[in-house]
């Protein structure tokens, strides 16, 4: 898949794809972002790029879990699990990554309740659940940290979040060699 020259060759021309399907529960948020970070490591991303990607993935996956599926039971303290006040939604989150021409495409899809008004949801500080200590900054952070963001949603059927980011680090590392 490397065009030529092995490790020092055109690393950015690699085409690479992966897909994970996981349960929409809070425990998997960390897994999802670390998986994407690991997926792009071979491009030698800068720490900044990695942080950007991890934050954006975390936001999208958290949205799918708490807004799409309404699984609010994230609880990381003293090993206690909060009493389940409601049954856990069995929905899955699909995470798809494609690396092509040095651009990382991330697609995060859920089959939850969907968003009625996407434009409204994307307003910074707007949150549909002010009761949850949420900031309403999810889409704003995704927009700030990725190059492109696209949200497609059908109420009752689910939401797809597509993000793109150009991975630039490979270029200057090659020049510095």
């Amino acid at each position: 898949m490397y065009e030529k020259g092995g490790r020092k060759g055109k690393v950015l021309s690699v085409k690479n794809e992966m897909e994970i399907l996981f349960d929409g529960v809070a425990e998997n948020e960390g897994f999802a972002r670390v998986a994407v970070a690991a997926f792009v490591t071979h491009l030698n991303p800068t720490l900044e790029e990695l942080d950007d990607i991890k934050t954006a993935v975390s936001e999208a996956v958290t949205n799918a879990i708490i807004h799409g599926y309404g699984n609010l039971e994230g609880y990381g303290g003293e090993g206690k699990q909060k009493l389940k006040s409601q049954p856990v939604h069995p929905g899955k989150v699909r995470l798809h990554c494609l690396l092509e021409d040095g651009i990382l495409h991330i697609e995060i899809e859920d089959t939850g309740r969907g968003i009625e008004d996407v434009d409204k949801a994307m307003i910074p500080l707007y949150t549909s659940r002010p009761d949850l200590n949420r900031a309403g900054m999810g889409f704003a952070l995704m927009e700030a940290f990725m190059d492109e963001l696209e949200v497609e949603s059908t109420p009752g059927q689910g939401t797809v979040v597509r993000m793109k980011k150009k991975m630039e680090a490979g270029d200057w590392i090659k020049e510095g060699d």
Binding site: E29, T62, G76, E78
Partner: peptide, 16 residues
């Protein structure tokens, strides 16, 4: 704060 501050940890931090 813990190593990773995300939704998973947030509930406990807020409550405490």
């Amino acid at each position: 704060l813990p190593k990773e501050v995300d939704h998973y940890n947030a509930g406990y931090i807020c409550e405490q």
